[in-house]
Design a protein around this nucleic acid. Structure first.
Lengths: 189, 189
DNA sequence: GTCTATAAAGCGATAGAC
DNA sequence: GTCTATCGCTTTATAGAC
């Protein structure tokens, strides 16, 4: 087992890793107990709603991170291209250059989605819309901006799948580079 | 429960749907029993290796389908552009225009990958390489062909994630249209 | 707050009747 | 082939001591 986790922030990060690695169903309380060093008693004290509440809190934490490090820069950066560059850097950091998968993506694919439908839907729509707005501000016409934003967000998710299938993070970093390039030079006027 | 399933082919299809909808961990034998109308006795008679063998057989069936309807046309079509068009049509059909997710993609994202590593890796690498070869035959230079092939395969996977997160299959069909377009007009010279 | 003990249900898998 | 009954284990969750 890992060292005993003291701070709540640290605990939520650890829970996120477990859910990412095993999915909601595969993340059993015994695994969570072992990896966090906290007994069931402690876990249910901190999360009376059990596993569902743990996942909910992790999802909210992930959403808050993206809001702060991705969506706000996209929306508010004076230079939209700089906001977009900021997004790609944040994404590379967050997904550990392709060694980490997207928790929201994993949850979205199977029936776990039905438990957390609102959070999952909002995460992706907020991302797509913030990016589309930045692209539009950067000179894309509205239609092309929305299409490119969808392609980029989907491209990131797909690159995570591909990289993990090949156990090769470079697949992800290559894809990010190309997606970034597409936001710079494509489909103008 | 569904009607009792008679033919093995039909059974494998049903198993595929269950694994797609619930993931490997979420596809419990009780769910499988209920959805197929077959008791555990029958299931273990047909698949002595249990759930792992069921998933293995489904993965092989999916791989065989893609080999026949996607990879071979990509590799052997006299007109590479026709082979690529064939691929996109097959993909739309297979994923039910975005209402079905990719079984291999779901398995790839969490630790289920470790059980079926070889099949998962091969599925995506065979797809990417067959598409890259077709693009090269169609006039892309080798580097651009490989990059575009990765973008297309990742784009399809990501579009499935996005479509499901929004519960909107149109997200998928839109993405497919754009990806197809990119194989026609991009990065030539 | 954190632990141990325990409950009740569900899990994958097997045995054996038919 | 398909069923029912059952095994041993794990699951989520709770109770109660400290």
């Amino acid at each position: 087992m890992a060292h005993r986790i003291a701070k709540r922030d640290e605990l939520i990060v650890a829970l996120g890793e477990i859910f990412r690695e095993r999915g909601f169903d595969g993340a059993s309380l015994s695994v969570i107990t072992e990896r966090t060093g906290l007994g069931k008693g402690s876990l249910y004290h901190l999360f009376p709603g059990g596993k569902a509440e743990m996942a909910q809190v992790v999802l909210e934490e992930v959403s808050a991170w993206f809001e702060k490090h991705v969506f706000v820069p996209l929306r508010e950066s004076a230079d939209p291209a700089a906001g977009i560059a900021h997004m790609f850097n944040a994404v590379i950091r967050f997904f550990r250059s392709g060694r980490r998968v997207c928790l929201v993506g994993t949850f979205a694919l199977n029936d776990t989605r039905d438990r957390f439908g609102a959070e999952i839907r909002t995460y992706f729509s907020a991302w797509t819309e913030a990016l589309a707005a930045a692209l539009a501000r950067d000179g894309f016409d509205v239609e092309a901006a929305h299409a490119t934003a969808e392609d980029v967000v989907a491209g990131i998710q797909g690159a995570l799948v591909l990289a993990r299938s090949q156990q090769d993070p470079a697949v992800f970093t290559r894809a990010i580079k190309r997606l970034h390039q597409r936001t710079r030079v494509m489909q103008r006027d």
